[in-house]
Design a protein around this nucleic acid. Structure first.
Lengths: 217, 217
DNA sequence: ATATAAAATTAGATAAGACTAATTTTGTGT
DNA sequence: ACACAAAATTAGTCTTATCTAATTTTATAT
């Protein structure tokens, strides 16, 4: 069907397209895939020929309906495998992304659907990203962050935006995971630092940047 | 670590090495991988340089201790994934091989061991092949076939030798799976056809070739 | 022992996908 | 509008792994 590279480009373009008002340029794709813009230009030509994307110098790269459908399926596989690795094999949050990156390319017509069923049709992956359904529909992503709360508000961690391992390890150190209850005690006006109580325990101060990367219910 | 191709060659050489008194030639490898002997010669050079195999024109190809260790790990991954696909995702016998062929290449230090634990440390895969342990030890394969039994003997299907989908589909049609009880009612002297009773049901006649591909306890 | 067949090997080509270096196009600030 | 920087593109190279065709080596049968 698709080569490994083609799938990685499709997925990368899909992810970039999630950022509203963002022009998807060869350079942006190169950065996201950590490769050379010259290589990207080659692949843009290839994917355009295959009618998976359209490229307009002014508007940047856009997935065609077919490209979008298949990109979403790759993301679906990635996120389902992440759930599997965390829930069934006991991996930690910060270890699953790279493995799912390989697993997502396994191509079998019914594998994703069987895995989905086996996992109980999860709506979100362990990072809180919505898992596209078999029909291509994507559940609504979370949008409120810890930094949006008002002093005194209580919330439940639903997802994280940043998936870097430094962030995830920091979360682990603070004992924050999906489902953890957090109360916003105070917002420091000077730099918007957040004083929070994690699971009802003693207070901790975190940065604004940190708060903006935690999505809550 | 290894490229996809290198892993496939290692696995193929390991599998061929399981046949006793078999000289592993470039042609044999080419047949098993369905590619060209010229390509095999190239890869033999590459794997020899990496000290994963030794090649002696008289004796054929042999895995070095390092090559053997890693080939066994690939086979371990393959067979563990087969168990997963069958037991957890509900695939049929004849569908799992090709998918496991892809999954076996996922490289993460602890993945196989975690999967092993998740599956309850199975000793044999759904085709009855022994699953190498984490330390590289391989459980004893089954050796008695249905064709070795004497008239009147009863047995339990433990494994199958042939993993072609035509064979596996035939088994399914006959309602034979791992654990099925079979009684040998009669051996036809003319062509060694076997008259058997499957799970105590009415008798069926199968060929000698068929019987030789069913391993029993 | 020698002809013939089979197997192994070499040489050279190809395709995918990446790179570097050079060049062209585009965008921005003054 | 011009200079400069940034981005895009082209040209050419490299690596991996495959192939075909030609050649050499090995094995086999008479």
């Amino acid at each position: 069907m698709y080569t490994l590279s083609e799938e990685n480009y499709l997925k990368s373009i899909y992810r970039l397209s999630q950022q509203p008002n963002f022009k998807i340029t060869p350079t942006a794709i190169a950065e996201s895939l950590k490769n050379n813009p010259a290589s990207v230009v080659d692949m843009i030509r290839k994917l355009t020929d295959k009618q998976l994307i359209e490229y307009d110098k002014k508007k940047g790269v856009k997935l065609t309906p077919v490209g979008l459908k298949d990109a979403v399926l790759i993301v679906r596989r990635h996120r389902l495998w992440e759930v599997f690795l965390l829930e069934k094999l006991g991996y930690h949050w910060d270890e699953i992304h790279d493995i799912a990156e390989e697993l997502e390319h396994i191509s079998d017509a019914s594998l994703a659907d069987r895995l989905d069923k086996f996992l109980g049709f999860p709506e979100y992956d362990p990072h809180g990203d919505p898992i596209p359904k078999a029909n291509g529909k994507v559940p609504k992503p979370y949008s409120v962050t810890l930094a949006d709360l008002k002093t005194g508000d209580t919330c439940r961690v639903a997802a994280v935006k940043d998936t870097s391992s430094s962030f995830l390890q920091y979360l682990q150190k603070l004992d924050i995971g999906i489902g953890t209850n957090i109360k916003l005690l105070e917002k420091i006006p000077y730099d918007n630092s957040l004083v929070i109580s994690i699971s009802g325990k003693e207070s901790t101060t975190v940065s604004q940047k940190f708060g903006e990367n935690i999505l809550v219910d």
